[in-house]
Design a protein around this nucleic acid. Sequence first.
DNA 1: GTCTATATGCTGATAGAC
DNA 2: GTCTATCAGCATATAGAC
Lengths: 207, 207
Amino acid sequence: MNMNDQHMETRIREVAQELFFKQGYAATSTTQIAREVGCTQALVHYYYRTKENLFRQIFLEQVEAALNVVGRSLASEMSFDDFIRSAISMYFDALIQNPRLPYFVLEELANNPERRKYLREHFVKKPSYVLLYMQLEGRVKAEQQAGRLAKVEPFDIMMSVASLTVFTFISLPMYQDLLSRTDDQVREFVEHRKAEITRLVLQGLRP
Amino acid sequence: MNMNDQHMETRIREVAQELFFKQGYAATSTTQIAREVGCTQALVHYYYRTKENLFRQIFLEQVEAALNVVGRSLASEMSFDDFIRSAISMYFDALIQNPRLPYFVLEELANNPERRKYLREHFVKKPSYVLLYMQLEGRVKAEQQAGRLAKVEPFDIMMSVASLTVFTFISLPMYQDLLSRTDDQVREFVEHRKAEITRLVLQGLRP
DNA sequence: GTCTATATGCTGATAGAC
DNA sequence: GTCTATCAGCATATAGAC
């Protein structure tokens, strides 16, 4: 199916997402979105009423998709080391497909207290995410009692893995431009970091 | 000395920095800067001609200050473990004073290829920074030959420490709002992360 | 559903009085 | 050095024709 065959409502959303990802919310205008879609600016407002509204739909969808990546790796039955390995690997693979997602989410949450508020109401209260964290907690305690894991809070494991993974992608454009790297070199760097981060975390979690 | 005693040029710069930090470049207008300073918008342009120009001065100054933190910790004579400890500690202490700096730098570099370009021309070419990295390289090699350090690239050590440190502060507003933490709890969390990051890195760098 | 036309407001920047 | 006044341009959003 050709992209141009789709309905305007969908195409506006796709183009908007692309532009929000690339430039951020403030720097993207509904006029620009319309221009790149090939329709009038009025149509953007016809479907989504306000720019903020258009943004929220895209934003929530993307955050939800990102959070679900965690869920998938936790569900399976494997050793704790393999669980860590696969969690980092899945995060990396997901972000390689969508390298600008972390920055996009970060930008809109960092500057905007209101968005953090509606994110809390949308996600944190959801029982599924609470359950997920409790599963992680259970595994960590068990592993620690078996003497195979350092005395670390489950939340710290999450934070450290997230820091190392997310920051890799956030800083990628800087790495590329400041050190004048080719696209191939960047891809290689990402793979290298994936391996080193896995090593660092596994070694760092040893008792 | 009262802040209101200072010259307008300085006050404009201070207020601009505060607003750029809080809201980002795109979301801050010279009109708003003027309003909070208590002068007219024309005066902002009188002193700095363009908004972009005002931004660049603040930006370069902040990046330079941030980079100098690395230099100070490398200069001294201590064991490699103590060097890592003190590097992380200094970074944390500097960022506790200025928690929004990492996000500010990140935002403007992530979205703006031109800014990355002039940052490269300003800093990466500078011999002092090249020298600094070579010093780190030397210490790492020596430590590895003595069998006290895992087989890790110096650049990876830099990246991992930066990821863990910077991301802590970048995600702080989210941590606070999404989990409904008080300011005191946030401060405690930062101290906790500082300790855990130090532990993780030291343990992770062991052979 | 898509358009044209337009309202209203804010932006960055400049000219010129004092 | 600081102000008032004003510019052109673009923003979001809406009304109404087809």
